[in-house]
Simulated assay, not measured.
Amino acid sequence: MKKERNSLKYAALFAWHWLCSGFFLGTLTLMGPVRRITDHARAAGWSETGEKAAVFALIGVLFFVSLLCARLLADKTAAAGKAGRYGLPAGALALALLALWFWLTPSLMIDRGMKSDAVIVSGTEFVFGPYPGEERLSGLKEEGYTAVISLLSPAVVPFEPVLLASEIEEAQEAGLPLIHLPMLPWISSNDHVEKALSELLAKGSGKYYVHCYLGKDRVNVFRRMLAGLSGDGAQAAPPPGSARTLYDIKSFERGAITVLAKDVFLMPYPTDEEFFGYVLNGSVASLVSLLDPANPENLSWIKKEKEIAAKYRLPLASYPWRSMDTAARKKAVEEIKRLKKPTAIHAFLSASPDYAEFKNAYRD
């Protein structure tokens, strides 16, 4: 066996089994242990760092388990008779195809309790939901929808390009126009969406079904952009349970999140992922920065936040806490309490003096 393991044929068998079994085991891991851990981490208030560490630990275990499985299967294939030499690789391929089918069937990933919801802006109705299958597309046509707006991006490989191609074909068969506005699940590279939205609103009529993969983060950011263009901030709020909120997490990458009052949160400066998942998804109505431009280290962060808030039409107020005297701070707290809620207030780090001082001032 040692001699066979040094052969090119054995290396090819090992690579085949590692690819196929690794993909299958990876799918099981993501849909089982990883999903359970992330759900628990968010419910228990783990930081993003802690959550990622747990996930990476599982990925490490998966890596070694898949290696062992691949070696075992390669050994058995090399030592087997004709039936085994073909049957074992074919079985591994079947498992990989099963996993691929799972990923290409979003209905298996969708929360069964999820419901579509709608907003009407300037006479145009937008209905938000998850990826529609062939049957759902036909139903949308019968229900009188003008078009489907797909936010799937070819850059989110390997699944979204395949799903998008299927959707284009199925929409054509259903006789339903499809508007493709690829939207990436982070805060940049989505400028084209705003332009297209403006053009749709200018028409003043129509009914559109808007979706990404699961109908969560990207559709809620789309909703935020829509509300900004319409000037109706109320439209930005997602329905209960359809978006992550700051109640769902107790820590960000840069520190803890404190609930100061009902729908009032004190947090550190969000990372790009945290902005997209917890702030720009319509669950925050007012954003407040405590960063002081007198500190040169804050300038780039202040500039970045202003650009994000302007782009996604999120009201942003700035109170340079470090430079304010006692009277100014008291007035600032009173003004912040009158802002539309939910309100998210941030220093840069939760361990900073500004964070602690503001928390005490707000609660006094």
Rank of each mutant, 00 (worst) to 15 (best):
K203H: 08
L260Y: 06
K250C: 14
L184K: 14
S205F: 11
I249S: 03
T258L: 13
G215W: 02
D232Y: 00
D191M: 07
L200V: 08
Q235A: 15
D191L: 14
K216G: 02
G255W: 02
P239R: 02
G231E: 07
Y209Q: 07
V193H: 10
S205G: 10
P240A: 06
S251Q: 02
F252Q: 10
Y213S: 12
D191I: 13
I257T: 04
E194G: 05
G255M: 08
H211C: 05
S230L: 04
R218H: 09
E194R: 15
Y247N: 13
K250E: 15
G241A: 10
F252V: 04
E253N: 12
L201P: 08
L226V: 05
G233H: 11
T245V: 09
I249Q: 00
P239N: 05
S205E: 15
L197Q: 12
D232E: 11
R254S: 03
T258Y: 11
D232R: 10
Y247K: 15
K203A: 05
P240D: 11
R223M: 03
A196F: 04
D191T: 14
A234M: 07
D217T: 03
V193W: 09
S230Q: 10
I187L: 15
N220T: 00
N220P: 07
L229Q: 12
G233Q: 13
G204W: 04
S205K: 15
N190P: 11
G204P: 01
V221I: 15
R244F: 12
D217A: 12
V210W: 00
E199L: 13
L226T: 04
I249H: 11
G206D: 02
A243W: 00
A236F: 02
H211N: 05
S230R: 10
G228N: 01
F222T: 02
V210F: 06
D248E: 06
D232S: 01
A196Q: 14
L201E: 01
K195N: 11
R224L: 06
S198E: 14
L184P: 01
E199C: 05
G215N: 09
H192R: 14
I257P: 06
K203D: 09
F252A: 09
S188Q: 15
L214C: 03
L226C: 03
A243Y: 05
L214W: 13
W186H: 15
D191H: 14
S189A: 15
R224N: 11
H211G: 09
Y209G: 06
L260I: 12
L246P: 08
S188M: 15
V221N: 05
D248G: 10
R223L: 10
R244C: 05
K207G: 10
S189T: 13
P240Q: 10
D232N: 13
Y247M: 10
W186G: 12
K216P: 04
G241V: 03
G228M: 02
A243E: 00
H211K: 12
G215C: 02
I257D: 00
K250W: 13
